[in-house]
Amino acid sequence: MKNPHYEYLGRRMREYHRTHQWHMSEGGLFIPHAYWNMGSDSLSTWDDVGFILNGRRVIVWWQHPRRIYGEAISSMAWKEAGDGPRDDWLFEGGTKNYKMVGKSKRRKKLFTTTSRAPSEAQTEHYAKLQAIEERLTRDGIDLEVRPSWKWERLNWAMGVSLVAPLEVRNEKELAEVARLARALILQKTSLADEFPGFVYDKASWLREQALLTQARDAKAWRGA
């Protein structure tokens, strides 16, 4: 029995695909990002890629497990720091900057707003939060992240959220993300088959933090 909601979304996907064309690579992928700042030893965290499957768009939102782990550290730091002062310094109490307009220069128009500095209490809270996050980053937390994926129907594409231990530092490696997502959708593989027994945990995080520290030290030594 057909689902009217899914049928409607399918029509919307096809209509959107006809009227909003993707600029595809030679390999048939929609690649929204560039990789000029990625080296062969960079640790990647997230990326997006799109492709066409059975006449419909598929957009893949990929994340490395280290990103999930890092975001958990940030969330834990916010929780440990507690609620800070309610100082909306970004939007309240700023200086309004006007620009004269018109031939007579007698009228002025709001051009920009310069935010004021945060209060002393807010600055202290930010410092506390930063110290906590630095400590958790240095020591790690007890968390295990395993590969996962799920998909959802949108009115312009099929959306695939994918967590997998791949490295994406160039278009060739991004193509592997697209290959994996396509194979998962078509049930030609599973994450258990692709990454048997994989888990990203505290040991993984600390090992990578040590590599990052070594890379920073080496860069500082070269610049000295």
Rank of each mutant, 00 (worst) to 15 (best):
F30Y: 14
I31F: 10
P32K: 09
P32A: 07
H33Y: 14
H33A: 11
H33I: 03
A34L: 14
A34V: 13
Y35M: 07
Y35P: 10
N37L: 12
N37M: 10
M38R: 15
M38Y: 14
G39F: 10
S40L: 14
D41T: 15
D41P: 14
L43Y: 15
L43R: 15
S44L: 07
T45F: 06
W46T: 10
W46C: 10
D47A: 08
D48Y: 12
D48I: 02
V49G: 01
V49A: 01
F51L: 06
L53I: 03
L53Q: 07
N54W: 10
N54Y: 12
G55W: 13
V58I: 08
W61L: 06
W61Q: 11
W62R: 09
W62L: 08
Q63N: 09
Q63H: 12
Q63R: 14
H64L: 02
P65H: 12
P65R: 13
P65D: 10
R66Q: 01
R66F: 02
I68E: 04
Y69A: 01
G70I: 05
E71R: 04
E71K: 02
A72I: 05
A72E: 15
I73G: 12
S74P: 00
A77K: 09
W78S: 10
W78Q: 09
K79I: 03
E80W: 06
E80C: 01
G82C: 09
D83A: 14
P85T: 05
R86G: 01
D87Y: 11
D87I: 04
D88A: 11
D88M: 08
W89H: 10
L90P: 00
F91S: 10
F91D: 00
E92D: 06
E92Y: 11
G93M: 06
T95I: 11
T95C: 04
T95F: 09
T95S: 08
Y98S: 00
